[in-house]
Simulated scan of single mutants.
Amino acid sequence: MRTFDLTPFYRSTIGFDRLFSLLDQVSDSSSSPGYPPYNIERTGENAYRISVAVSGFAEPELSIVTKENTLTIKGEKTANENAQDQSEVLYRGIAARAFERVFQLADHVQVKDASLENGLLHVDLVREIPEAKKPRSIPINSKAIAEKVSVAA
């Protein structure tokens, strides 16, 4: 079983550590825990990428669905791929079973793009915090405080 120590990320992202916890949680329904393998990368301050190894799957056999804070990646092979050339598979080392990976996304994380290249499905995510939720600086007006003190005296 693979485990990742995300402690360094927790230290540098005070208040946002829930993002890493949610990205790290994956619920597998029917497939084996390690299939298909995936990586989660931080590509920028508010940008992330999930890369899933989907060798043997064509673009029409893959689907990416987001609903609320859940990202679901599914792969289903079409019926017998060898029916076209009437060949018989003697050994199948490349997994061709259906899979479903579910990732829990943090608040305000949106799917920006998805691409399939060299057997890897890349899903780019971005954290877009609404302007109302961003921290804002409050100016300190010491002159107004001094005037209130002198009026009260």
Rank of each mutant, 00 (worst) to 15 (best):
D17M: 09
L22Y: 07
S63F: 02
V65T: 11
Q84P: 00
R2P: 13
T43L: 10
K133L: 13
R49W: 02
N80A: 12
L22K: 15
S12I: 04
T43S: 14
S29D: 11
R11S: 09
R11P: 00
Q25Y: 09
A95N: 13
F99R: 13
M1S: 06
D85T: 11
E59L: 14
V111Y: 01
S142T: 07
K112L: 07
V111E: 07
V123T: 13
A153C: 01
F103L: 07
K112R: 13
R11K: 15
A95Y: 01
P135V: 09
V52I: 14
R49V: 04
K134F: 03
P130G: 08
S63P: 01
L90K: 13
I94D: 03
L90F: 12
T72K: 11
S51I: 04
L62T: 04
L116E: 07
G56E: 06
A47L: 09
G34H: 08
E68T: 05
E100D: 04
K74G: 01
E147W: 00
D28Y: 09
N39K: 10
I94F: 04
G93K: 06
E68L: 07
N39S: 12
V65R: 15
K148T: 02
Y10N: 08
P135D: 09
D5R: 14
P8K: 09
A47M: 10
S31T: 10
R2W: 04
E100F: 00
